[in-house]
Simulated assay, not measured.
Amino acid sequence: MSEDEFAELVRDCPVLYHMTTEGSWLSIRRHGLWGTAALLDLFEVEGEARRLVEARRAASVRIRHPEHGGATIRDQKPLAERSLAACLEDGLRPADWYALLNARAFFSLTRARLLRLLNAGSYRAEAHDVIEADTASLVAAHRDRITLCAINSGFAARRAAPRGRSTFLPIADYPYAAWRAKRARGERVVELAVEPGVPDIAAHVRRVVRMRGGREIETLWRRG
Rank of each mutant, 00 (worst) to 15 (best):
E3T: 07
L138A: 10
T147G: 03
V15D: 02
T167E: 09
H204Y: 10
A120H: 06
V15E: 02
E46P: 03
E191H: 09
T21C: 11
V190D: 04
L114Q: 02
G213A: 13
G91R: 10
L118D: 04
D12Q: 09
Q76A: 14
N119M: 13
D96T: 11
L169W: 06
L26T: 13
L100T: 14
L9D: 00
D75W: 10
E54F: 14
G91K: 07
D144K: 04
R185T: 08
I217D: 10
S137A: 11
L52I: 15
L118P: 02
N152R: 12
A95K: 11
R50P: 09
E195V: 06
D75H: 13
L109E: 00
R207S: 09
A150H: 15
A55G: 06
L84E: 04
W25M: 04
L101H: 15
R74W: 12
R51M: 05
D200H: 04
V139G: 02
G91Y: 04
S166K: 12
G213D: 07
E81A: 13
T147L: 10
A120F: 13
A172S: 07
F6P: 00
L114T: 03
A85C: 08
A112L: 12
S24V: 09
R159I: 08
W25A: 05
V10H: 02
L33D: 02
A127L: 09
G224S: 14
F6R: 11
Y17S: 01
I217L: 14
A37H: 05
D75I: 07
A178P: 00
F155K: 10
E195P: 01
S153F: 09
A136T: 00
E3D: 15
A157K: 12
Y174N: 00
E132A: 05
V194T: 01
P199V: 08
A99K: 06
L39Q: 14
A125C: 13
V61L: 07
L115Q: 08
A161K: 15
R62V: 09
H65S: 10
R64Y: 07
I151A: 05
I201M: 08
S2F: 02
V208D: 02
T219F: 07
V194H: 01
S153R: 12
G121L: 11
R183W: 15
S153P: 15
I28T: 02
T36D: 05
E46K: 09
L84G: 03
R165S: 10
R113D: 08
L118E: 04
V61Q: 14
H142R: 06
R124V: 10
E81L: 12
A58P: 13
I131A: 03
Q76P: 07
I171C: 08
C149Y: 07
A136G: 05
L109T: 03
L52Y: 06
A140Q: 06
L117S: 12
L169V: 13
E89V: 06
